[in-house]
């Protein structure tokens, strides 16, 4: 059975034909399986949704109970059948609740990676490589220039900068879901026990992480600190609000941004970032190629990102590879 005869890209998203369901659909469908809670993967308006309990909780907090449809939670490793297609979820190591979707039909196995990374993340269980016939991988950072450094070093650079510029506010841009909470955990692990101030858009998801047992320490809303109180403090905010009027209250802030894109100096410079932190929730080039080796799939489909390079790499390794164009995915869950 050729895999493309039962799983194929459609305008609404990746469609599993015999199971009659979509994975991470970009427009409302009857039945959706959702890999994780970032807004380019999880959308409201579907009739039925299957995901991990954590992902469902994230979707509820983002879209409200009514907008996500009838929900079905599936734990990692638990297996069900949808119209004869075996479906189970495996940890993807991307953010809280993130999962790969493992599909079995008539003796053939396709794994949809969703977004993933391979290094340790204190807020979610690690990626589990699963042997399969077709591996559908993300490719956000699929160029050999992307080699994320050790996140401990990046956090140490942030703490060092705070020591060098004690009179300035450190304002760090973080994606609200995942990056924010991971960075806070990393800071706590590095021994930073001061209060961390949050932009209002980050508060709800931090509360949700806490409810799922992630200890984030002393967090305070940034609006509570009076304008004069920002010297020497750490403020986290969504990237979109960095250049915003909102940040003007923090006189002379060191602008920082935690993202895999910060690896490219000109990217950082274009955004006016003074302290780029290369911390990503996506696999870098080494992790992507390592994963292709570990899952041992003779065929790989590459989606959303820089497909060309990974397809080229896989081909030189004797893996059948092709780019799969799916609409609606952004560069990095922003």
């Amino acid at each position: 059975m050729r895999p493309e005869t039962w799983v194929r890209p459609t305008p609404a998203g990746l469609f599993v034909e015999p199971g009659s369901f979509y994975i991470d659909p970009s427009s409302p469908v009857d039945r959706a399986v959702v890999t994780h809670g970032h807004s380019d993967h999880a959308r409201g308006g579907n009739r039925r949704v299957l995901a991990t309990a954590e992902t469902l909780a994230i979707m509820k907090s983002r879209f409200g109970h009514d907008a996500i449809g009838a929900i079905q939670a599936l734990a990692y490793g638990e297996r069900i059948e949808i119209n004869g297609v075996g479906v189970s979820l495996a940890p993807a190591g991307h953010i809280l609740g993130s999962a790969q979707v493992v599909l079995d039909w008539q003796g053939s196995r396709i794994v949809v990676s969703g977004d993933y990374k391979r290094r340790r993340d204190p807020t979610c269980p690690p990626f589990e490589p699963i042997r399969c016939d077709v591996f559908i991988t993300e490719a956000t950072f699929a160029l050999p220039v992307f080699c994320h450094p050790d996140d401990k070093e990046e956090v140490a650079r942030l703490l060092h900068s705070m020591a060098v510029f004690p009179e300035r506010t450190h304002l760090v841009g973080v994606y609200a879901l995942g990056k924010c909470q991971r960075l806070i955990r990393l800071l706590r692990e590095a021994g930073y026990d001061q209060p961390i101030y949050l932009h209002g858009a980050l508060v709800g998801l931090c509360d949700l992480y806490r409810e799922h047992g992630v200890d984030l320490g002393d967090l305070r809303p940034a609006t509570e600190a009076p304008p004069g109180m920002f010297a020497g403090v750490l403020v986290l905010a969504p990237p979109s609000s960095l250049g915003d009027r909102w940040s003007r209250r923090m006189a002379d802030s060191v602008l920082s941004f935690a993202s895999g894109w910060m690896r490219i100096k000109q990217r950082a410079k274009q955004r006016g970032v003074e302290l780029p932190l290369v911390i990503s929730d996506h696999a870098d080039w080494g992790e992507l190629t390592q994963t292709l080796d570990e899952v041992g799939a003779p065929e790989v489909w590459v989606t959303h990102g820089r497909e060309d390079a990974l397809v080229h790499h896989a081909t030189t390794r004797g893996i059948r590879a092709r780019a799969l164009s799916l609409l609606g995915f952004e560069e990095e869950g922003s």
Partner: peptide
């Protein structure tokens, strides 16, 4: 690898940075 190098250079846009990163 020349293919990977060209794709990377196109993306990064700076020879020094491309070679340094890759």
């Amino acid at each position: 690898d020349p293919v990977l190098f060209d794709l990377s250079y196109d993306y990064v846009g700076d020879l020094a940075e491309t070679v340094a990163l890759i």
